[in-house]
């Protein structure tokens, strides 16, 4: 028997032994760097086939998951809306805090500049539409050491102060402000830079009336009306308004119509002078 005949007859056995030697070589050459790198390359090469298969298999699973998520969507939406509301409230609070902080900061600076004893920033919390020009409520009271008759002013640039009214009644955490437009309010006033005295009385409207101005006193339209030094509780020279018109009253005095220098309908942050 020739070698060729032997190989043909025992082809599977010969192949098996040859391949066995090769596979045993593979087994023993696991640590070989070249084998490892070749294997890594082949795995990298074949791994690309996993991607489309994974996509195909994952598609129905993803669709099913989306439907499951859909059932939770309503609850999640309600939760989110609730959180959004909360966040909105927090935002408003935050803005108010920043606003208050800025006011406090300016107040502290102004206190030193104008030599007021104390400036207390207050917030308007209530204003009745029936008594719109009569009074308003602020959120500070005895807890801020407020007391009756203290003047309340408004400022926009911390250079000029405008008289709003006086503290009428004080509660523990709130106070009622008697506005200068209230008919019960009477504040001694004078024309700025002139020695013309009078009393500013409210009319229940946007306009004020300066009474008891003598007929011989020269009051012109556009004159500025400020507080006088008659009342010790109110510092002098706080601006009230400007003269709109001058009439003669039945009592034999001039009746000076004064318009407040500020928008009395828009009062938010006020300052109490102490």
């Amino acid at each position: 028997m020739t070698l060729r005949e032997f190989l043909n007859k025992n082809k599977p056995t010969v192949l098996y032994f040859l391949a066995s030697i090769l596979s045993i070589t593979f087994l023993n050459s696991e640590v070989n760097v070249y084998i490892k790198s070749m294997r890594s390359f082949m795995i990298y090469f074949f791994s690309s086939t996993y991607v489309p298969i994974n996509n195909i298999i994952d598609y129905p699973i993803n669709v099913a998951n989306k439907f499951i998520e859909l059932s939770y969507l309503r609850e999640e939406n309600i939760k989110l809306k609730h959180q959004l509301k909360k966040m909105f409230l927090y935002k408003i609070q935050q803005e108010e805090i920043i606003k208050d902080y800025n006011i406090y900061k300016r107040v502290l600076e102004t206190k030193d500049a104008f030599k007021f004893k104390e400036l207390i920033p207050v917030n308007v919390i209530f204003r009745n539409n029936i008594s719109w020009y009569n009074y308003l409520i602020i959120s500070q009271g005895r807890n801020y050491n407020l007391s009756e008759d203290l003047p309340v002013v408004v400022t926009y640039d911390f250079n000029n102060f405008y008289l709003v009214g006086r503290i009428w009644t004080v509660e523990e955490k709130t106070s009622k402000i008697l506005l200068i437009t209230n008919q019960l309010s009477g504040i001694p006033a004078k024309i700025k830079n002139k020695n013309i005295q009078g009393v500013i009385i409210g009319s229940g409207t946007n306009e004020l009336v300066m009474e008891y101005v003598l007929l011989e006193d020269e009051v012109n339209v556009g004159d500025v009306v400020v507080t006088s030094s008659v009342l010790s509780s109110i510092p002098q020279n706080i601006e009230i308004g400007t003269v709109k018109s001058v009439k003669t009253s039945i009592l034999g005095f001039k009746k000076v119509i004064v318009l407040p220098s500020y928008n009395i309908n828009n009062l938010g942050n006020l300052i109490v002078l102490k």
Binding site: T25, E30, R39
Partner: peptide, 28 residues
Amino acid sequence: HTDAVILGFICGMLLDILNLKLFGVNTF
């Protein structure tokens, strides 16, 4: 018989490449 040996070797190699185990074990 011969085809079984050859394909056994090829399929084993393929399995060894795709599995991170001892290289050559599936081939053998």
